[in-house]
Amino acid sequence: MIVATGITRTFAGRGGRRSTPVHALRQVDLTIPDGGAVSFIGESGCGKTTLGRILCGLEGFDGGELTIDGQPVSRLRERQRAPLFRRIQMIHQDPYSALNPTRTIANILGDPLALRARQLGKPDDWIAGRRAELLGLVGLDPGYVLPRYPHMLSGGMRQRVVIARALTVDPEVLVADEAVSMIDVSLRLGILRLLRDLRSELGISLLFITHDVATARYVGQDGELYVIYRGAVVEHGSTDTVIQRPVHPYSQCLLSAIPVLRGIEEPGPDRLIPLAPLEERVEPPGCLFRPRCPFARDDCAGRQPPLGRLGGTEQEHACRYPQNREVVAVPAANA
């Protein structure tokens, strides 16, 4: 189980002395239960990727605490952290740069397995068997992929190799950052289903980072959804609650942006008009979303509303005036 409390990450701004620091993450609290599914959604630059990288130990944080299986990370030495973070494996967005182009798949999987064999005290012939087993698990034919270099495989196959490589160290959590956005559409569902099956069959928890709410729903319908805006969680609840009954205007804008398949779907009655692009340089007082919010009122400038269940909502949210709006497309009547 991973528990993060008050995670904060600030980057020094670019552009000399006058620049303001960039708040990548502001006091983020989250929990990834064992075997659970958690999704982060938000637009690019909202901090969801940074958060994922912090959870994988690929990046540090300035404030707050990250607790992995009961061990607070900031109190551990580098040497003690490494095995802890090894339980959390990242599936990168781009399967083209996630595999070393100069090495065959046999080597790419064999190296971490050799290390694993030493840790577990297994004999050397265990490696080949385990390698074939993992490839079978991700739906690849070992005889075909093992002697090949990454460039000889399709994007979908590469991403499966990446997943198999992550599985070599028997992880407890997989962090998938836009894991299907660079894969052909007809192959995406296969990868998403693989991630879902790994969770149900092996009990691996899944952190799914995406801007595409529909894929987040596919892999984690029974899980939790965090909507992140400018480094802060603005809405958090069970996936279907947030999708069907969002109360924060930003979540509603995100959900409205999903293309409507006209003919079989109709736009939700409250679908919002797309927003103006984000002005990252401006740090407004009060609610960060106020400048882009279609429902902003004068007193929203007063104070950033805390995450809570104001208005007796099922999910947590950070809006002073929560209101349910039906923005998601509905099945067409004549379909």
Partner: peptide, 19 residues
């Protein structure tokens, strides 16, 4: 990202440099 992955898998530094 393949080097990030190698570090994340716990492969030792000399492996990463040479291989």
């Amino acid at each position: 990202s393949f080097l990030e992955a190698a570090r994340g898998l716990g492969l030792p530094g000399r492996h990463i440099i040479w291989r």
